[in-house]
Computed example of a mutant assay.
Amino acid sequence: MSVDLIIEDDRWAEAGLQVLADRACAAALAHLGLPDDAEISLLGCDDARIATLNAEFRDKPVPTNVLSWPSDDLAAEEDGARPYAPEPDLPDMPLELGDIAIAYDTCAREATEQGKAFADHVTHLLVHGTLHLLGFDHIRPQDAALMERIEVEILASMGLADPYEEDGF
């Protein structure tokens, strides 16, 4: 598992984003039984940068916590079905899963508002972003239920509480 990190906001380096990302992304892949030779590109940025990206790619000119750009569309056609398994572009090549961007300001604000440890919240968002790269989504109801259940299972395997419970971690 390789997370290629670009840090645009130095607060991410201080927060140990590389360690958090390596752990969260690897846990997501392991939970789904995927090979550990996958590659993810990660941008650690601030709210201004993610607002620009959100405007450019989603037509929403506001900050958000995390954005994902999968290399391939792996989404299932049927609501609630598992996405298609990723495959490398060429044999013996690593799986290039895509790109994730995460905003420090929004993550810090959300963690504080929700009474969660910053590292735990970021870990959840990195698992969430990784699942998006793997074709999971939360637009349709059964897809959302599947994605949430898998997030909770992955986080539990890491010793983290259910982030969707009111008393979450």
Rank of each mutant, 00 (worst) to 15 (best):
Y104H: 15
V3S: 03
I139H: 11
P83C: 01
P86K: 10
G98N: 09
D72L: 08
A13R: 10
L95M: 11
D9R: 04
D59V: 07
D89E: 13
A28Q: 06
G16F: 01
T106C: 07
F57A: 09
R58F: 14
D120H: 10
V3D: 02
L32A: 07
L42M: 14
L53A: 08
R23I: 02
K116R: 15
D162W: 05
L155Q: 04
E113K: 11
L53N: 02
G159R: 05
E110W: 10
A30N: 10
H132M: 01
C45Q: 14
V62P: 01
L90N: 10
D143G: 00
D72V: 12
L53V: 06
D9E: 13
A161E: 08
A75K: 15
G135Y: 00
D36E: 15
G33Y: 10
I6V: 15
E148K: 15
D92H: 12
D79F: 03
S41R: 15
D73G: 03
L32C: 09
P86I: 07
Y104P: 11
H138W: 02
L43S: 13
D92R: 13
I100C: 08
S2D: 10
P141F: 00
L134E: 00
R109P: 05
D47Q: 12
A26T: 14
D46Y: 08
E153Q: 13
A48K: 14
A81Q: 09
G80W: 04
L32T: 08
E87P: 03
R23F: 01
P86Y: 12
D167P: 03
G168D: 12
E165H: 12
T123P: 02
L67Q: 03
L5M: 09
M147L: 02
C25F: 07
A48I: 12
F136M: 01
D79S: 02
S41N: 14
D22T: 07
L17G: 05
I100R: 11
L126D: 03
S68A: 15
R109S: 09
K60V: 14
T64L: 12
E56G: 06
D79T: 03
H138E: 05
D9K: 06
A51M: 10
E8F: 08
W12M: 05
G80D: 02
R149E: 13
D22R: 08
Y104G: 12
P63E: 11
P70D: 05
P88K: 01
R49G: 07
E110N: 14
D99N: 10
M147A: 00
L160C: 04
D4F: 08
H128S: 02
L20V: 02
Y104C: 11
L125P: 04
A85Y: 05
M1T: 09
L67S: 01
P141E: 01
Y84P: 02
L74A: 07
P35Q: 11
D37A: 09
K116C: 06
I6C: 09
A144M: 01
C45I: 12
I150K: 05
A55G: 09
L126E: 03
A119V: 00
E148F: 07
